[in-house]
Design a protein around this nucleic acid. Structure first.
Lengths: 196, 196
DNA sequence: GGCTGATGGTTAGCTTCCTAACGTTATCGA
DNA sequence: TCGATAACGTTAGGAAGCTAACCATCAGCC
């Protein structure tokens, strides 16, 4: 991901707008701030991971397997499931699993019932790696958001949701209302990934 | 950049928090929404670029050169200047310029005064490429931010700035106040880049 | 004037993502 | 039952980042 080092000031945007009539200065300012903040957040929370010699992609895989272990007996996920939940292609997941298996953090064992599949499980080494990394990861996340009050956090989440939904006018999201959860399938463990 | 397909619900975060005491649910929710929105924005605005067969990195270089042309006679920037302003390393910039020159969008011509340098300029082909791409790019940007009112945009920018500044408590930023601009060196043309 | 150091650009090698194509295995319909 | 279809995982090749190392050139200091 590449990002301009310094964000343009509003006055500069106005100046550019004269040259490009399609440019909406306030939209552009939102866009640039969004990208910068996303990049900053991703980079910041990625640091503790890098310090332990693990990339964001590998961390995602390990976390998904850890969560699965808490749910099911086998604790296994197929590469296709992992790719789908992590948001990468199956080809990319093959590469991630390759290196994780080489380093001893996960294990592939063929499925006896369907020989097309090769479920993946977390090894003790992988689990102990997570034990060491996860606290620092979440602490960094808390530090990042620390400047915002709870009310500001709610506002920010609402605005970001509105942006992503693209004005579809669905349910107003009402996050942070713990009562009366519809409790459908929960998406997942908090993971990462960059703007980029 | 890889991102979980579906963001976790707040209730799920609370559940995860029980397993990881370091997890601050509201911080985590902000983090995930931020990454998702940044990714969405980058991807969305990148589409018009890809449609014209140009990547975000190359677009950045061309825009920087276009802006320079509007400022100085030569309209040239050195690879080091380009790398600095685009936020990539000089090695990466070498690769970008290589392909852009191969495709005829920029030209390298040695500096007669300092033979270490090889300033880069935009060719007519590069300029006409931009003519075709830029309107769609800015239109998409406007569409992305369309769901937000002007007041909401101000709020969002303020909150994102607060996050990035890390609570340094500098000037409250007051964007969108067009009067009395300090008018220092303007940063640049709006460009892109992902969370990633 | 000739080292020393700083600067500019490139190269080489690595990572992580992608798409496209492939071989294997399961499933389902005629 | 057997051929078509679909799904799983992998491989091959390419794009765009990065760091580290490398020469060429300039500037400054004895």
């Amino acid at each position: 991901m590449l990002l301009l080092r310094d964000l343009p000031r509003y006055e500069c945007l106005l100046e550019e707008a004269r040259r490009f009539p399609e440019l909406d200065p306030s939209a552009c300012e939102v866009y640039l701030h969004l990208l910068r903040a996303g990049d900053e957040a991703f980079r910041s929370c990625g640091e503790p991971l890098e310090a332990h010699g693990i990339s964001a992609g590998r961390f995602t895989v390990l976390m998904l397997l850890l969560r699965k272990r808490g749910e099911a007996d086998s604790g296994a996920l197929t590469p296709a499931e992992l790719a789908d939940q992590a948001g990468v292609t199956r080809a990319t997941m093959t590469g991630l699993i390759d290196t994780l298996e080489r380093d001893g953090f996960v294990r592939r064992e063929p499925d006896p019932h369907d020989r097309r599949m090769t479920p993946v499980t977390l090894t003790p080494a992988g689990e102990s790696l997570l034990q060491g990394v996860v606290p620092a990861y979440f602490q960094r996340m808390g530090l990042l958001v620390a400047p915002l009050s709870e009310a500001e956090r709610r506002t920010l989440v609402t605005l970001l949701s509105k942006l992503v939904r693209g004005g579809e006018t669905e349910e107003p999201s009402i996050p942070f209302t713990s009562g009366a959860s519809p409790a459908p399938a929960c998406a997942s463990v908090p993971l990462n990934s960059p703007v980029t």
